[in-house]
Design a protein around this nucleic acid. Structure first.
Lengths: 329, 329
DNA sequence: CTGAAAGCGCTTACAG
DNA sequence: CTGAAAGCGCTTACAG
């Protein structure tokens, strides 16, 4: 039923290894023979059996990616997965999707995958500071991360630069009190990075600004955090939020206080998820170049260890109509 | 470096096949021997090599799922993928993610995966009427679909019942002119299904209602389609939309005309994507039981062909504060 | 340029 | 209950 190299060989009147050579080292085969074999392959619809090939080559042709069962969906990571899947396809590999609990609890799943040689490498996302997965995996399998890591290769977006750009844009619109909305612990590398950019830009421009912290990445938490800032003395007229979800909460807090979002109080988000374009007023956000990030990660899969910092792109919408820097692609 | 069955056998002082038996047919092994071998397996961290195992067992342990490079992200399908990944993990399988162009153009990718025996089966989503993938795959590989199909097993949500429930709820709120917002061609099975439910409920209740069609699944298209209905004579006071995106557009059209969404004009969406909970007013929507859908699809992977229709759950929010039917879980 | 041989690591009837 | 043997389908040095 299944076509094997044996049948192709019989059909083309050559040995099995010549068929294999046509596929894996065509230069070694006489053009006439090669053509005859290729024709037989085509006619019989032969494709090398993956398991046999993998066994012989000691590889899996698969890159592992974990989708942890999250309570709140992470739209950015889902979009990233699409981009990564497309990028890795160009190298003849596929993505093996598995689910594992977050943190230490999930390490066993990763270990088993390595021991079974079910994957050749891992691509990690949703990384946290001092991620246990890095300690557990680096050295045992190639690991590349979307997001800063202490070990292994990684690709990330320069959140500091993006937030500084937002602050500069808001200042150009006349804002002098620009708050920052982050997440409460655990403070991820991304949070610290973005906050540092906001802080630096504020300092350089001589602006004031306080920090509010959301309990988690939800609209409700963002609304509470923003509300606290807005109700305090010297309330901010602009809020730079750590995520679109938190920013949406901030927009609601603004509206609930009878203020006009984008006019009385400007709000910016991060990641440019589908939420940003879907709401009114549209949410100014920072788009991460997911296709480029994915391509770099695929490159790092085969290259030596490296770190890549890419630039995000400010997407200006009505919630904070900042001027767009040219060349910020 | 890699631990093989050979080393475990040597370590435990038994033959290779006894090690294999401990793993695959423990009842055949003497308890004492079994314990000794198990201990060696544990100590050496042995895990059977997947490629070798797959080759022997003539299976891949992988279920293929295609992420087509979409211009507009499909939040429902991403959430479904998470649910499916978790559900299939319980059966010891994983998901192989690949990308292929939609329609006929992508069939070759599916065929190659079958010929290479890279996957044991496919789970299809985003199915269209008379989907070419079904014609191409059914008979060659097990295929289960999320969404109605002419061939193979499928699991879907009863959109007609859900939309009828929405109409009934809206009527209870006093609405008499309830419009439907669908998508222009291609008319998917889901569209026809939901529209039929709306139509049936309207007829039963003696209500009027017109249909508007959005050009695609975007907020902008939804706004245009809703606007046309709202500007016509005998404008609807309620709109049942085919998706959350289209519903969000409808909300914007309502607001843009100085009408209060949820009060003057009620709007409902479909899928209960993260968008629905994130906007103000919250969007009433129909939640699909993704965990259950995924579990049923996993079951159908091994069972004989079957079709399963599940019930959606109306999530009532401020955009259309319909009473919630009890037992609609 | 082409073919005979070995082997990747596992499992499964089949003898003993 | 346990072990010797065959074989899943492929690729890769190595002879010829």
């Amino acid at each position: 039923m299944t076509v094997t190299v044996r049948q192709v060989a019989a059909d083309a009147g050559v040995s099995r290894q010549t068929v294999s050579n046509v596929l894996n080292a065509p230069a070694r085969v006489d053009p006439v023979t090669r053509e005859r074999v290729a024709e037989a392959i085509e006619r019989l619809g032969y494709r090398p059996n993956r398991a046999a090939r993998n066994l012989k080559l000691r590889r899996a042709g698969l890159v592992g990616y974990c989708v942890s069962p999250r309570s709140t969906p992470n739209l950015l990571m889902d979009a990233f997965l699409h981009a990564f899947c497309t990028a890795v396809a160009d190298t003849g590999r596929h993505v093996l999707l598995f689910s594992a609990p977050p943190g230490e609890a999930g390490i066993g799943v990763y270990h088993d995958l390595v021991a079974e040689r079910a994957v050749d490498a891992f691509v990690l996302s949703d990384t946290v500071a001092d991620d246990p997965r890095h300690r557990a995996l680096v050295g045992r399998a190639p690991v590349v991360s979307f997001g800063r890591a202490d070990l292994g290769s990684w690709v990330d977006v320069d959140g500091a630069a993006a937030c500084a750009e937002l602050v500069t844009g808001l200042a150009a619109l006349g804002h002098r009190e620009i708050g920052f909305l982050g997440w409460r612990a655990p403070e991820t590398a991304a949070t610290a990075d973005r906050r540092a950019g906001w802080q630096r830009a504020c300092a350089e421009l001589g602006l004031n600004g306080r920090v509010g912290l959301a309990d988690d990445d939800s609209v409700a938490a963002g609304e509470r955090a923003a509300g606290a800032l807005l109700d305090a003395e010297s309330a901010p007229t602009a809020l730079v939020a750590i995520s679109d979800q938190v920013a949406l909460g901030a927009l609601q807090a603004v509206t609930a206080r009878g203020l006009r979002p984008g006019t009385d109080v400007a709000v910016t988000g991060f990641d440019d998820t589908p939420l940003a374009a879907a709401v009114v007023p549209g949410l100014t956000s920072v788009r991460q170049p997911l296709d480029l990030i994915a391509a770099e990660l695929v490159r790092l899969l085969d290259d030596s260890e490296d770190q890549v910092l890419l630039r995000g792109k400010v997407i200006s919408r009505a919630s904070a109509p900042v001027p767009v820097e040219k060349g910020s692609s």
